[in-house]
């Protein structure tokens, strides 16, 4: 029995599928967040080198991972939308961008707050922090381009091009920033976030990452549904839906 995957690629059926999935992911996210934070704060031992400050790792690393992962996902969906002209994939890409930008900002913020006690300054031109900042600019570029174009179809495709060009550039930017950083400071400041890695710390961080992932999926699905409604407002099924919604 071949599952007809393409059934879900039409916005109408995806709308209802997403509707069913959102509660699942949001519940999973809340449970995992609670578990991760509990382990992070109550189970993980004090770090002998950094004292308690290292506990920021439980939100900093997941946020950084998510920011990069979501940008790649956004580029993939945008690429599919451009190649196969499927409206839904472009909607997904548009829905991913704000959450990705939020995680990038979080990674920068928690990175700076962690840097203050450890390196003594809020901002250090460390290769990772700098490329994270550039990633934020890429997100903002994508979102502002899409906001500037009124016609949704053109906005999708233009956004797709800039997302794909961006994703090609991410490794280049990362390595050039790494090279640039070592050039300036001689030996790179060896940023040992914390000696790798007591098991409880690791599990705490992994749980938090999965929690962030679940949260991201839930929020993105909700935003996708809203975009679907926005763009399909003239179709019949949205008409009936609204009839029901009142």
């Amino acid at each position: 029995m071949a599952i007809n995957w393409f059934k879900y690629s039409s916005p109408a059926s995806f709308y209802f599928l997403a509707g069913k999935m959102i509660p699942l992911f949001s519940i999973a996210a809340t449970i995992l967040f609670a578990a991760g934070l509990y382990i992070g704060f109550f189970v993980a031992p004090t770090d002998f080198q950094q004292g308690e400050a290292y506990r920021i790792i439980f939100i900093h690393v997941p946020a950084a991972w998510m920011s990069m992962f979501l940008y790649v996902m956004m580029a993939i969906w945008a690429g599919i939308g451009l190649a196969f002209n499927t409206r839904l994939s472009s909607m997904m890409a548009t829905a991913i961008a704000p959450t990705g930008a939020m995680f990038t900002f979080l990674a920068l913020w928690t990175g700076a707050l962690w840097g203050k006690p450890m390196w003594g300054t809020w901002w250090v031109w460390d290769a990772r922090l700098t490329s994270e900042l550039i990633l934020l600019f890429l997100y903002i570029g994508f979102m502002s381009l899409q906001a500037a174009i009124d016609d949704p179809r053109r906005a999708d495709k233009a956004g797709a091009v800039i997302a794909l060009v961006g994703v090609v550039n991410i490794p280049i930017i990362y390595f050039s920033v790494k090279w640039w950083n070592t050039l300036h400071q001689g030996a790179t400041v060896s940023v040992t976030q914390s000696p790798k890695m007591a098991t409880t710390m690791l599990t705490g961080m992994l749980i938090m990452s999965i929690a962030c992932w679940m949260y991201a999926i839930a929020v993105i699905l909700i935003r996708t549904r809203t975009i679907i409604l926005e763009r399909e407002r003239h179709t019949a099924w949205v008409g009936e839906l609204r009839g029901v919604a009142q």
Binding site: F137, L138, G141, I162, V165, G166, N169, I172, I173, S176
Partner: peptide, 10 residues
């Protein structure tokens, strides 16, 4: 400028 500057950085 917003689109292109990040790509100019390398």
């Amino acid at each position: 400028s917003l689109l292109v500057l990040p790509l100019y950085i390398p």
